[in-house]
Design a protein around this nucleic acid. Structure first.
Lengths: 211, 211
DNA sequence: CGTACTTTTGAATCGCATCAAATCTGGTGG
DNA sequence: CCACCAGATTTGATGCGATTCAAAAGTACG
């Protein structure tokens, strides 16, 4: 792995809630790594040696079904990814770079040690896991809806702010996150616009209230 | 809430990994509660006052979609449920009893205090959250499959043991967990049996390897 | 023995997946 | 600057599988 000492902690950790709570001893053993778009950082089954935190770009936790379709399980642009790997010997998913960027890698043993000896940090970590649990429950709920339009509405309500959301990705990969084909997504968006239920401006879209 | 002092800690906690790690101070403030089949213990939006642990029977974390379909997000017969409520003021889902049974309720403030002061307990709690994260990711992956047969196979591989699984619930509610209608489940099971891909014995079923 | 619920099968309908193809886009190199 | 390419976007046609509504048969329980 291409690594380097972390140069400056001050510039990171503004958006992510957990990073500022990382204790000094753990910071000292963290390494940065640059990644290119499309790069596969870890594969399912690889030994889980590090806890990863995305600083720039985008990483995704994915799994390929038997038929070859890629399922997006987590999508992170700022913060920790694959948090559950702390408790297992190997990664259970692939970790791929959707956008060129940079990550922080914390050796797992040091990470465990820090949690064990810093209750504040441990509390922040638990809160992070709880957030991820809630996010995943919302995603399960969304995937249980059986029309494309319903999933789109659910996404805007859950991930958006007051009926408005900005899609931070291509529509094609948004479709994968919603568990539908990209054609179905395009058509559903078109129909919803025609019916006046949705207003689309590029990557920003807004639900319209029913009369 | 109908509560009572916990009579005997020795009889609980054999199957669940976390319960034996609960420190004494927290045990002293725990209460038991009996629940009847069909009872709704908490509704979405209710203030989250307790962390719940199922001792007997079955509790489910559910959410109703706009169209009225019930989505099953978690199903627990032995262990903690709605763990993420530790981090929020209110429950985000309904908690309903699928089978008559009994639960332990830990006041949230005392639970937080115990985590903060007992690193071993806190580590066990984090591990529990991580397990739930992995379980939910598997469920998301399953719900991303778009045929009933594929979801059945995925369930047997993920929740079963070496291609064999015992369904601990009615097929109707299994269908809800798989995100398909119960008719589709019956038909898919029938087709898979006819094709020789699956052997069904009541609640137990086994995948057959391809030649 | 009746009631409530699950299990099972049938028929009709609808929406999504899939394959195909055209257009548009951003980025690369000549 | 333009040609070119890869990938995203968009539209069309077709078939399949799931949903839905309906109804019968089986099962558990008081």
């Amino acid at each position: 792995m291409v690594v380097a000492q972390v140069p400056d902690w001050g510039k990171w950790g503004t958006a992510n809630a957990l990073l500022p709570r990382v204790p000094a001893a753990l910071r000292r053993v963290a390494r940065t790594r640059h990644f290119a778009r499309g790069e596969i950082l870890y594969r399912r089954g690889d030994r889980a040696a590090d806890i990863l935190c995305v600083l720039a770009g985008e990483l995704r936790l994915t799994r390929a079904s038997r038929t070859g379709t890629e399922v997006i399980l987590q999508r992170v642009r700022d913060g920790f990814i694959a948090e559950a790997s702390l408790e297992s010997k190997a990664y259970h998913c692939d970790i791929v770079a959707a956008d060129e960027g940079e990550l922080l890698a914390f050796p797992i043993a040091a990470f465990r040690h820090a949690l064990q000896h810093d209750a504040t940090f441990h509390a922040a970590w638990s809160a992070q896991l709880a957030r991820e649990v809630r996010r995943l429950r919302a995603q399960c709920e969304r995937l249980s809806l059986n029309s494309a339009a319903e999933r789109i509405c659910h996404f805007i309500e859950a991930d958006g702010d007051n009926g408005e959301v900005t899609i931070g990705q291509s529509r094609k990969s948004w479709a994968a996150e919603l568990g539908i084909s990209h054609e179905a997504l395009y058509r559903a968006l078109r129909r919803m616009q025609d019916e006046g239920a949705l207003i689309v401006h590029g990557a920003r879209m807004r639900m319209r209230m029913k009369p």
